[in-house]
Simulated assay, not measured.
Amino acid sequence: MNRNVNYLVKAGVIAAIYVVLVLVFNFSSFGPIQFRVAEALTVLPYFTSAAIPGVFVGCLIANILGGAIIWDVIFGSLATLLAAYLSYKLRKKAWLVPVPPILINTVVVGTLLKLAYGFQDGLIVLMSGVFLGEMVSVYGIGLILLNALRPVSKFIVDKELI
């Protein structure tokens, strides 16, 4: 398969899975206390750079379909893009891969909840809610996913990482 096509297919599949997970778990994917199961996919840059646009596009589409306001669609998705890129840069140490999504989303999404959505809770309270949800999704489910995919990683790992 052509290398570019392979890359696009990987990114597209990751984006699609992200969207489906957000929509299936819509009840917990939005709001002041978020537990976004799809955030577990933010560990996938450990295996492939295609996960960077994959989780970004997935987050963008999920936010639009989930009814997020424009500021959340833009800045929430850009936060995911930055986090995925930084996770990719940290892939040499698997236990560090979840750190960027957790920290960046804690700050960005917590701030969006306060400023863009106008939740009355304090900024620290809102950030704490996002932080806890991210910890469970990314460190909990995400690291389980990362370790579960390691035995089959030869099918998804970028050739330059081998």
Score class of each variant (00 low, 15 high):
residue 132 L to K: 02
residue 88 Y to N: 13
residue 103 L to W: 13
residue 79 A to V: 14
residue 10 K to P: 13
residue 68 A to D: 12
residue 150 R to Y: 01
residue 37 V to W: 08
residue 130 V to I: 12
residue 21 L to Q: 07
residue 1 M to R: 13
residue 3 R to M: 11
residue 88 Y to M: 10
residue 108 V to K: 12
residue 151 P to D: 12
residue 115 L to T: 08
residue 66 G to S: 01
residue 2 N to W: 07
residue 32 P to V: 14
residue 152 V to C: 06
residue 80 T to I: 10
residue 128 S to R: 05
residue 101 P to R: 04
residue 68 A to V: 08
residue 99 V to Q: 14
residue 25 F to L: 06
residue 158 D to T: 08
residue 87 S to W: 02
residue 98 P to V: 07
residue 160 E to D: 14
residue 119 F to Q: 00
residue 73 V to C: 11
residue 156 I to Y: 03
residue 144 I to P: 13
residue 109 V to K: 03
residue 50 A to V: 04
residue 63 N to V: 03
residue 103 L to R: 09
residue 18 Y to Q: 00
residue 43 V to N: 06
residue 56 F to A: 00
residue 6 N to L: 07
residue 137 S to I: 04
residue 158 D to Y: 06
residue 49 S to L: 14
residue 134 E to F: 00
residue 127 M to K: 04
residue 158 D to H: 07
residue 77 S to D: 03
residue 162 I to C: 14
residue 78 L to I: 12
residue 51 A to I: 02
residue 74 I to M: 02
residue 77 S to R: 02
residue 113 L to W: 10
residue 18 Y to L: 02
residue 48 T to L: 03
residue 123 L to F: 07
residue 85 Y to R: 01
residue 107 V to H: 11
residue 91 R to H: 03
residue 53 P to E: 01
residue 105 N to V: 13
residue 144 I to K: 12
residue 97 V to S: 05
residue 4 N to M: 10
residue 63 N to P: 04
residue 142 G to N: 05
residue 162 I to Y: 15
residue 106 T to W: 05
residue 110 G to M: 08
residue 102 I to Y: 11
residue 110 G to I: 08
residue 8 L to V: 11
residue 127 M to V: 05
residue 59 C to L: 13
residue 127 M to W: 05
residue 68 A to S: 15
residue 109 V to E: 10
residue 6 N to F: 05
residue 12 G to C: 00
residue 45 P to H: 07
residue 100 P to S: 06
residue 123 L to V: 04
residue 41 L to P: 12
residue 62 A to G: 03
residue 72 D to C: 15
residue 111 T to K: 06
residue 18 Y to A: 02
residue 49 S to H: 13
residue 32 P to K: 15
residue 159 K to T: 14
residue 64 I to K: 06
residue 156 I to Q: 02
residue 132 L to N: 04
residue 5 V to F: 12
residue 14 I to F: 04
residue 39 E to T: 03
residue 126 L to K: 07
residue 55 V to C: 10
residue 104 I to K: 09
residue 158 D to V: 08
residue 85 Y to A: 05
residue 79 A to D: 14
residue 99 V to G: 14
residue 28 S to W: 12
residue 67 G to E: 11
residue 31 G to H: 10
residue 16 A to Y: 10
residue 68 A to R: 08
residue 127 M to C: 06
residue 150 R to S: 02
residue 93 K to A: 02
residue 38 A to C: 12
residue 162 I to M: 15
residue 47 F to W: 09
residue 61 I to P: 04
residue 127 M to T: 04
residue 15 A to Q: 10
residue 71 W to R: 15
residue 73 V to H: 10
residue 82 L to D: 07
residue 65 L to Y: 07
residue 144 I to R: 12
residue 21 L to Y: 09
residue 8 L to I: 12
residue 134 E to V: 01
residue 34 Q to Y: 00
residue 18 Y to M: 01
residue 6 N to A: 08
residue 71 W to E: 15
